Simulated scan of single mutants.
Amino acid sequence: MAMAFKVGMLRAYFIAGTQDIKKSNLTLPEVLTQALQSGITAFQYREKGPGSLSEEKKVDMAHTLRKLCETYKIPFIVDDDVDLALETAADGIHVGQKDERVTKVIQQVGTKMFVGLSCDTKEQVAIANETEGISYIGSGPVYPTGSKADADPVIGIAGLKRLVQSSRLPVVAIGGITEENISELPQTGVAGASVISMIAQSNDIKRAVTRMRAVFEK
């Protein structure tokens, strides 16, 4: 049974695929286990780009990560892959503006899982506001990022604040967020932060996650 969406899930939101794990001594399931033990509030599996797994291995990995999230009672979200989301009985699916149209995804998943959508402009937010079936919005990149080769132009803190003000849905910030700059985010009104490298490449995952949670618990 998929988890119902709650705003608190956005507070410390970890996104990763095998391509994001740069440490030779740790696997993605090991990094995720540490992140889950440290208190992340959601996990999105995003297997994309150079060094990512083939389709068959991706499915196996998704099942492994799904089980881990289930054990820790944390939502498992799949990035832009309806078939994989349905096969793993994911709690949520996240789609970007360049991916399949969100309305089609909503029809395909029905009430089986919640849907998140990336919105980087006020126009995109306005459409999301009128679209039945979206639970939250991901907005950014707030800061320059090295994790996505096709990242959109940086919107900055001021841009993020404008999007939050125009959104009827809760917003999670993404893009270039670090342990240093994350303290600037609460003033924008976002519900939380979603990060890749801040956790995936951290030398102290516990510290990184604790920092994320602390910033939004104030």
Rank of each mutant, 00 (worst) to 15 (best):
E130C: 11
H94F: 13
S147C: 14
R168M: 10
Q165V: 10
L169S: 04
G116N: 02
P153G: 06
L169Y: 05
A149V: 15
D150Q: 10
Q97M: 12
E100D: 12
G146M: 11
L169D: 04
G175A: 08
I174F: 06
A128T: 08
Q97E: 12
S167V: 09
A128H: 03
T103M: 14
G140T: 05
I174H: 04
I155N: 02
P144M: 14
G92F: 03
Q108Y: 09
A158F: 09
A149Q: 14
S147E: 05
Q108L: 15
I137T: 03
R101Y: 15
E132A: 15
V172L: 05
P153M: 11
Q165H: 12
C119F: 04
N129C: 12
P141M: 09
G116S: 08
K112C: 05
Q107W: 14
K148C: 09
L160R: 01
K112R: 13
G146P: 04
G146Q: 13
L160Y: 04
E100A: 14
L117V: 11
D99A: 11
G96F: 09
S167Q: 04
P141L: 08
G133M: 10
K161Q: 14
L169N: 05
K98G: 09
E132N: 13
Y143A: 08
I155W: 01
N129T: 07
